[in-house]
């Protein structure tokens, strides 16, 4: 009996240990960014570097908030947050709606040309960004699109294939009895899709949505080019890269880290909010085969 309890206890300890290792692995580099963002230039240059910001002379803990002050005084950065939110949200919604339509067709309906369609959609995203940039820029100038809209459209290049493929695989997994029983009840296929499939795959939708959102939030190269002529439309990654030092060549490393830390927080909050929904959707027992 005692050995059994010990075994369970040991298992528990093992589990928490594993959890701790994972958390440290994932969060420590981020902690290092936080640590760096709270240092002055002199503190950053110290050898050896310290695990918390310390004064170079006295070695007392000394936190520097100037980097955060600087980014809040930077109008472009704050505007970047607004722009990024607009672009990433619109991209995600567009990619989820069109993607789930396409995925329903590809995962649940029988029609000619299904496989070519699947591969064509994937082919959209098989080139490196640098390669397609010039062509894309030409398309956007020809169409005369404004910067925000061109980013949303251009981000379809990598978000749409992703949402379509992931959702297709999830739709396909759902047992066909669900569809059949709905059809018996007189529902049209589209009603089945909207009323039954979508709610059932909520976790997949939220997951793909989150990943697509972050991908759009983080995109740099397209945004740099498309907003070059329109500074008002710059997104966060571009705004951060426009940070400069006091003089040319100086890299404002502390400020960059402060910005990185600061813009990661809303994304993490977003995850927290939506994760609850996933768990809720699941425990209600909706997804039972």
């Amino acid at each position: 009996m005692q050995t059994k309890i010990a075994k369970i206890g040991l298992k528990k300890i093992g589990f928490w240990l594993l959890l701790a290792v994972i958390i440290i692995y994932l969060a420590f580099p981020f902690y290092w960014a936080v640590n760096s963002s709270l240092k002055t230039q002199a503190q950053l240059q110290m050898t050896p570097g310290t695990f918390v910001p310390r004064d170079p002379d006295t070695m007392e803990i000394s936190v520097f908030l100037g980097n955060y002050k600087a980014i809040f005084q930077n109008g472009e950065f704050l505007r970047g947050i607004v722009n990024s939110t607009i672009v990433a949200t619109a991209t995600t919604l567009l990619a989820l709606v069109t993607g789930s339509f396409a995925a329903f067709a590809l995962g649940k309906l029988r029609f000619r040309g299904r496989k070519p369609a699947l591969y064509m959609i994937l082919a959209m995203t098989m080139f490196p960004q640098v390669t397609v940039l010039t062509g894309l820029y030409a398309v956007i100038t020809t169409l005369g699109l404004d910067a925000i809209f061109s980013m949303i459209l251009a981000y379809m290049l990598f978000t749409l294939p992703f949402t379509t493929w992931v959702l297709t695989s999830f739709f396909k997994d759902l047992p066909k009895e669900i569809m059949e029983s709905a059809q018996v009840d007189g529902a049209t296929p589209f009603q089945t899709f909207r009323l039954i499939l979508l709610p059932l795959t909520a976790p997949a939708l939220v997951t793909t949505g989150l990943l697509a959102f972050i991908a759009a939030w983080n995109e740099y190269l397209f945004a740099l080019t498309f907003t070059s002529i329109d500074p008002e439309a710059r997104t966060i990654p571009v705004a951060i890269n426009y940070f400069t030092g006091v003089v040319a060549r100086q890299e404002p490393f502390g400020e960059t880290m402060a910005a990185a830390v600061f813009v990661t927080i809303p994304v993490v909050l977003l995850v927290l909010i939506f994760q609850k929904r996933i768990i809720a959707g699941l425990t209600s027992g909706a997804v039972k085969g």
Binding site: L26, A27, L211, I214, A260, V263, V267, V268
Partner: peptide, 12 residues
């Protein structure tokens, strides 16, 4: 916490 690394802007 799990998503932090993916959320940090790639260039940064």
């Amino acid at each position: 916490v799990m998503l932090i690394p993916w959320a940090v802007i790639t260039v940064v």
